[in-house]
Design a protein around this nucleic acid. Structure first.
Lengths: 337, 337
DNA sequence: ATTATTTGCGTAAACGTTTTTACAAGTTTT
DNA sequence: AAAACTTGTAAAAACGTTTACGCAAATAAT
């Protein structure tokens, strides 16, 4: 506390050069003779000098800070994305600020209007906002993760939700199921919508029409997963298979099945979306559509950093990276044929 | 991008005053007439001016940034602490940087030597380092969370690990168990050590001496929890009760018990430390020592912010806040008496 | 009515960098 | 041998704030 931080001036004085020269070796921007460079580098090392990036950012408007904005900080899917982003950013010399919007559009807006939102170099965003205009109003380099909004004007890293749901449904069909239910939530974001339509298409391709009574649309929560699973299983003509369209719905479904004393993969077949601890634990283990969560954060960070550092010549084309999903087949689906 | 940010100068010009005056109303530091203040406030609002805190921090050395440094970012316990800290910090106008050290002492050191570590106003630290000297070398306001290091020179927010383990063991004893095993890890940090000695004391008080064969010391991982549980249960004279000294060990134990086809609370009794999804799911639900995870982050942030903002007059006494643990009793312990 | 004090605010110097401009010395071209 | 570049460096102006200093006007004390 007492001893003030070492500045570029101290280094310059020590080396007998001007601050400009030190700055030059720091940024490698201009020519410096090899002797001088080595000498300065050594002194920097010896004095343990760490440049003040804030002072630097005042002049060059780059902060070397990224932000990853997520709806909630305690959800394992988001923390996986965060950890991927943080890792990549760190390697590239960027610091990452983690911001949670608590699923509130207002908090999301607030972030962008705050000093922070205005001063990070780029943003990895798992959006909460629903209106494309909001996203279009973002002037910073931004990568949307998971939830993509059409017409938002930003690149994105997503997974093929359609295919994931399609394959899950296909799996049921292959095993001879016909009364296949789906539990999902609203279709405001593409991820949710695509999962439904993937299910829908698979059904249609097999000549089955999805029935309304087998489509339970809630709020993507564990509670709804639980409630709807019970409803479905206690109805007159229960489905033989349930597709739980996200991780927490799947958790709810597992609990409901347990509480009804039904045997998974025997009395009822289940496929979930996203791996989760419970799905891995129960026996038989639940077949799930799995996606590379951490990798999504990694990809997003890489795209973002590239965007930040590249010449902004050809920014024309929007880039959407679609990562692969995989159906991990375990024993939760009964073979009927 | 094209339109540069609005600065205090623009506001000053618009208001027909000097930048000093604007700065004064911004910080409320000096006297400004009511009329001028109102006028300036209005203009700030209208122009949507957001002060550049970096420029400010150059002169006053305060960044209004906090850092929360954790061993891993994907562990639910840590994310709970983080979310508590972030929430409090935000309310107080602080931005929080989340840093993961990946359980590496080197990465922890790196953080403190980096620009970041030198420029945040304070740190909430869940340490990875083992040597007190390291902690003593930290010059910034710092609050240690969960793991406290004696002689570190900083305040802390902990829970009463000793009592938690004591009560867990007591519970076994009350139900008539005598062959009580404990699975833990190294005792480098107080939390781990205290849990062991809590167990130890409860045993002693009942006239039992803890036996070495019932103390399995590993690395605090799920794998060890799994492995040791199997070992214990397949030994000649298996314990009737197992105390799993943290959340992941408990997870491992649950899985081992399942894989051995034993009935929880019947063939074997189990108490875990920290609630976790699996412990809540299995039936009977596992009795656990539960602690207020998010609250720990909240408390830490509050203590930290107070420390930062208070006059540094009486910093003499170190403050350790000990939060309460609670034994949540479910059916995983069999009554033998 | 004079002097002393308070109030409100402007001026200018910091804070630690980067970057533009300039210029001397050395090197190449004519 | 002069002219034209190259190379390595320094000086100084930015960047957007805060704050010490000072001064005029308003108010209070004599």
């Amino acid at each position: 506390m007492a001893n003030k931080e070492i500045t570029i001036k101290d280094v310059a004085k020590q080396a007998g050069v001007s601050v400009a020269t030190v700055s030059r070796v720091l940024n490698g921007r201009d020519r410096v003779s090899d002797d001088t460079r080595k000498k300065i580098l050594k002194i920097i090392e010896d004095m343990n000098f760490v440049p003040n990036t804030m002072a630097a950012s005042m002049v060059n408007k780059k902060t070397r800070m990224l932000s990853v904005v997520v709806p909630e900080i305690q959800n394992p899917f988001y923390t996986a994305v965060i950890s991927g982003t943080v890792e990549v950013a760190k390697k590239a010399g960027f610091v990452t600020l983690v911001v949670s919007t608590n699923n509130e559009e207002a908090e999301e807006e607030e972030f962008f209007e705050s000093f922070l939102g205005k001063n990070v170099d780029g943003i990895v965003l798992i959006g909460t906002h629903r209106r494309p205009e909001f996203y279009r109003s973002i002037r910073k380099p931004t990568i949307l993760v998971d939830r993509y909004i059409n017409n938002c004007g930003h690149d994105g890293v997503m997974i093929d939700n359609f295919r994931g749901a399609y394959e899950a449904t296909r799996h049921f069909l292959d095993y001879g199921h016909e009364r296949i239910a789906i539990i999902d939530g609203d279709h405001y974001f593409n991820d949710g919508k695509d999962r439904y339509w993937g299910y829908h298409q698979a059904m249609h391709e097999s000549g089955l029409s999805p029935e309304a009574r087998y489509h339970k649309q809630g709020t993507w929560t564990e509670e709804d997963g639980y409630r709807f699973t019970r409803e479905l299983l206690q109805s007159e003509e229960p489905p033989t298979a349930i597709f739980a369209a996200n991780n927490v719905i799947c958790t709810g479904a597992i609990k409901a099945i347990r509480d009804l004393n039904l045997r998974m993969g025997e009395d009822i077949s289940l496929v979930g979306f996203d791996d989760n601890e419970l799905a891995q634990f129960v026996q038989p283990r639940v077949t799930v559509v799995s996606r590379p969560t951490k990798e999504m954060g990694v990809q997003a960070a890489e795209m973002l950093i590239q965007k930040i550092t590249e010449e902004p010549k050809e920014q024309a084309k929007l880039k959407k990276t679609i990562l692969d999903v995989e159906l991990l087949i375990f024993g939760s689906v009964k073979k009927l044929n």
